[in-house]
Design a protein around this nucleic acid. Sequence first.
DNA 1: TAACAATCCGAACGATCGTGCTATCGTGTT
DNA 2: AACACGATAGCACGATCGTTCGGATTGTTA
Lengths: 194, 194
Amino acid sequence: MGKGEATREAVLDEAGRMARTVGLGGMTIGTLAASTQLSKSGLYAHFQSKEDLQLQVLEHAKARFVAQVIAPALSAPRGEPRVRSLFEHKLRWDSAPGGCIFTSAATELDDQPGPVRDRVARDERDWRDTIAEVFRTGVAEGHFRPDADPEQFAFDLEGVFLAHHLTSRLLDDSTAGERAWRSFEQLLATARVS
Amino acid sequence: MGKGEATREAVLDEAGRMARTVGLGGMTIGTLAASTQLSKSGLYAHFQSKEDLQLQVLEHAKARFVAQVIAPALSAPRGEPRVRSLFEHKLRWDSAPGGCIFTSAATELDDQPGPVRDRVARDERDWRDTIAEVFRTGVAEGHFRPDADPEQFAFDLEGVFLAHHLTSRLLDDSTAGERAWRSFEQLLATARVS
DNA sequence: TAACAATCCGAACGATCGTGCTATCGTGTT
DNA sequence: AACACGATAGCACGATCGTTCGGATTGTTA
């Protein structure tokens, strides 16, 4: 890995951290340059525009998300164990300092058209598809009812994540984790074969 | 109502609309002045600072929220009907153009300390308390199980709202409403006496 | 209608925004 | 050791940011 690539990744790491607290739009070139010991123009050698930077931040974050959440979950046994693993890892991801960048970007950009919003929307769809797909392995394994709706499960589970995110960050409520777990167990109980 | 008060309210209306799409921080004095046919300094006659403006926007929005969501719901019969009414009105509120300003402000400011964040957090707590309190009338009326947890219900219901918000706005998914209703009915079914 | 207060504007402030250009630095290859 | 080239810095640009202040204009009241 060349030197340029190294600093580029370092910048993307810092930018991701920054975007999680002030948003993708609130993040500025100046402060980002300062906190990475670079000059503003030094940054622009790696990114053609702020929009390009935002897109790369999302791409970089998604790679980390796949490595830290999706991949570990997929290594769990099919069915309910895999669903549980996915839930656990995603909850841990959301508990990182600053929270989940996709969650913050999603509500920030949901009404601002453009390529960045499109990218966030695509990632959100991918994520829901992943949840639904993992849930389907549970149906196939006979853990969940055959008439259960995987997309509805994804909708509900995403709601649990969002509520947890808000409860733990905005309200500083330490019971958010327990609450999320309780909701999750209830979702599973409803989906299970009777 | 004097003229000053009238323009102040007009500005707050427009500011609320603007904040819903670009966020409380993304909203700028210049564009707000332009879209209200005022000069920047003309705005500053009504608001001492941008932070003060943001706080007033939240206060103004909360008054409308109480009038359009809480009050109508409280006029419904105690118990499950009142819970249903609260859900309906809140869903309608979230479906306004630009969505819910509290939802957008909540995820925007959840990691940026200051009086605005404190205000948003207080509003969020009030809202959850309202949900829990309305749910309690359902327990008292014998509609819901006595051992049901009102705060947990508030957590779950807020999750449904958040998922609906994201699904309808970011994903432009027209089935968001049906999904939210299905989740809501499931929540009620679980809470009901067996 | 005259006087007074409320309301709003014009102009300007320093700071910072995103974005280019040009020059210099460092590094690795020949 | 000379060179080529990728990586970074310096400086500047027009625009816009939030904010201030003095003066003009408007509305209300006696």
